[in-house]
Design a protein around this nucleic acid. Structure first.
Lengths: 194, 194
DNA sequence: CGTAATGTGAAACGATCGTTTTTGTTAGCC
DNA sequence: GGCTAACAAAAACGATCGTTTCACATTACG
């Protein structure tokens, strides 16, 4: 009454590649099935609906994203570079060449006027993870201003992702420049407090 | 062989309200027709397809947006406030309570994997208008750094819009704070050049 | 080895959608 | 006031999509 791990992987691979590059609504379930080499009967034994498959693909994608982010953080030398590592992770995650156009989570939120519970939770978890980790990374650097700085960085990250919709020629240099400037400002203001 | 101005207005009003709040793909053409009180035959005498109606609604919406932005610029006293007037315009435009969830142009770009020509052009025009006007407004303030500043402001504006997908409780205060900081930085750097 | 779970393949379902067509009615205009 | 362009109402079209079903093949495993 369940599904095999290997076929689940094939399904999630195909779902990830198609849903988050061509779009969820623009991708028929048959396209996922064909790319995965899985029959429809098997898919619907493992997942109750297309939306459930989307939610599962989102959850797996967030784990992958957090792994990439963790690796970028470990590569950073200073507390300051650990905050800025989010942009290294953005670039690494994009260069996996999986064809995703901008952001799977923001894209899912954009496609559903009021999303099914499972998808809404996945998007909310992505936002919460971004916010919380940015705050934790900012805390050693700017202390009590960490929450405010994290909120600004979250907007910058979202802006970098949204800019990918405006043209293909975009990297993280602009976002990095903004983040660098506001980091300096918060550092100055932080030491002025003491 | 054409369409009456009053019925075109009714169509565009309905299209704007439905496409940019519920989403284009999620809005059947019948919903637009019902809300507009217009028959299908009339719509397809004026527009060759649904996508053409979307493009027309986008074009009209950009004119409205530029008007709101112009008004906000005129309300500003200093060159600096004229740059920051984008965020006043963003808030004014949102408070028209037309139900738009985030951004009609980014939303349209997100819904189509490769958009029909007319829609792609409308989105590109929105981006170009934002970039060019921000640069023109920044020029009196930071001179040769105007293009770089405009690119950063464009990302911040896009980030503010994208943040509306992450939760309903968002205004322009965070975006304003970031913009204020990077404005100070560019102003300092600008005077240091001379 | 045999059996039960898991898989394929293909067909069919009901529903929805964009678009066209037809017939008749309304509203603008000289 | 009458002619004509614009419109409503409704039905029908072909296509597409998510999902289910059924008959049969395959894989894992005690």
């Amino acid at each position: 009454m369940a599904i095999r791990a290997t076929t689940e992987t094939k399904l999630l691979d195909a779902a990830d590649a198609l849903f988050f590059s061509a779009g969820i609504g623009a991708t028929p379930i048959d396209a996922v099935l064909e790319k995965a080499g899985v029959s429809a009967a098997t898919l619907y034994r493992g997942y109750p609906s297309k939306e459930a498959l989307v939610a599962a693909a989102l959850e797996r994608r967030q784990l992958a994203w957090l792994d990439v982010w963790d690796a970028a953080i470990e590569r950073a030398a200073s507390p300051r570079d650990r905050v800025l590592a989010v942009f290294d992770a953005l670039e690494s995650f994009r260069l996996r060449a999986d064809g995703a156009r901008w952001c799977a989570f923001l894209g899912s939120a954009a496609e559903y006027a009021d999303p099914p519970e499972e998808i809404a939770r996945a998007v909310a978890r992505d936002t919460a993870a971004l916010r919380d980790r940015l705050r934790d990374l900012a805390e050693p650097l700017v202390g009590s201003r960490a929450a405010a700085l994290a909120e600004e960085l979250l907007l910058i990250v979202s802006g970098d992702l949204a800019m990918r919709l405006r043209g293909p020629d975009s990297d993280t240099t602009v976002a990095r420049a903004i983040a660098d400037t506001i980091l300096q400002a918060h550092e100055r203001a932080g030491t002025a407090d003491a």
